[in-house]
Write a protein that binds this DNA or RNA. Sequence first.
DNA 1: CGCGCCATTGACCTATTTCAACGAGGGTGG
DNA 2: CCACCCTCGTTGAAATAGGTCAATGGCGCG
Lengths: 246, 246
Amino acid sequence: MQGHDENPGRHLIAKLNAFMRTTAGSEDAINDLASRRITSLDRGQDIISEGEEPRTVNLLVSGWACRYKMMEDGRRQILAFFVPGDLADLHVYILKAIDHSISAITPIKFARLTPKEFEEISDAHPKLLRALWWESLVTDSIQREWLVSVGQRDAIESVAHLACELFVRLKTVGLADGNQCDFPLTQIDIADALGMTQPHVSRTITKLNKTGFVSLKRGKLEVKDLAKLQKLAVFNPNYLHQLYDE
Amino acid sequence: MQGHDENPGRHLIAKLNAFMRTTAGSEDAINDLASRRITSLDRGQDIISEGEEPRTVNLLVSGWACRYKMMEDGRRQILAFFVPGDLADLHVYILKAIDHSISAITPIKFARLTPKEFEEISDAHPKLLRALWWESLVTDSIQREWLVSVGQRDAIESVAHLACELFVRLKTVGLADGNQCDFPLTQIDIADALGMTQPHVSRTITKLNKTGFVSLKRGKLEVKDLAKLQKLAVFNPNYLHQLYDE
DNA sequence: CGCGCCATTGACCTATTTCAACGAGGGTGG
DNA sequence: CCACCCTCGTTGAAATAGGTCAATGGCGCG
């Protein structure tokens, strides 16, 4: 078990394949990236905290995490979920202090790259660098789509949209098993991501499950009718900027 | 009048000064950037539209614009406001299709740079390139803070927060005159940015103006008690990542 | 066994939406 | 110069999505 992972970059590799289709030469480089300074954290611990000076680029190797901001009075907004293969803040070392925190939703492992390491590897693999930029632009695009959800979608649309997004993203990195995938979010996480309250998330999930398009519960998400779920969510996958061949 | 602008990059220069304090050598380069392929648009026209292949980096030279997304059923979410000195999508040419549109809120002028021009200039001025990255990261940070507004702040907090942000940003680019600045947004724009309805924006602005901290009306924003307004808005300027010496 | 965390559910409450009417101002064409 | 229209903002009344508060129950774990 305990033995070390032969292919820790496989989720990122799978994702970049949705962009460039030619990771071939870069696969070793990515696995190399994904092996540096591996750190493990338990659920609830922060990878980085607001106000720190950013020093590393973080690649999530296993587990889920979230980016969030706390308001002074304790309100929390989750800004993004990270799943394996996701990179946090490629260029953030330019800033003096980060304006948000990232914490583990499940036990996680992540690789911490110094800007220098990162530059070396990307200098040696210009195509990879371009792909990583793409990755970063997709992350921005997801951020924008979340604003659409919170600003325009009602409760059931929002929850359905989140389910669609995470399912597609997990599928892309090879972590969906047929029509189902892990789903470790609590209702509080969902509430803080979508700007709702936890009881209302509960009621909304109940209602959503009753449609039969999906079975969403803590731990496991099962998509039973993706087309209908997407329609309900007003989900348009363009914002994920993938190549569409499946 | 009609004569051409001697210093079209001054707003961007002022903004970058809040980051690097040494635009000296780069000022000419920025003014050069801001003179390329100047385009004028009337209110309501799109700079770029969803689905297009992005080809240029756009620098807003005068007027206001907004980035927005339309849902299939016509709901609109405004994702960002652009004021003079703002750059749209530094690296977006990596993507095959943009996932949002940008349109003019007032008559605008903007410069369109090809990726090539942009690279030439930034190769010649590495410090400038770094500053432009900073600019782009601040834009991302603003995007995140908007999600906090829409997800967590109630109506009066949201509107107050938007007023704070735009006032600070305009001040940074030299477009605030003492405690007041232009404010061309309609209540519909505000509503679509904050995920509210226009009538409720109207009621909320009335209530906000009654606090006496601010006078907000179409055309002009006047800040009467910035500290109290910021407190009401739960506004923490850190997310704008400026140097704080004033 | 008991504690803590998480989800469910009910009853009530309220911020915001919805629908609709009205009014002010600015521009245009007759 | 007036009439008209169109956009934008204001306001009221009624409706509702979602919030609040609180009790209950399941379940995993020390």
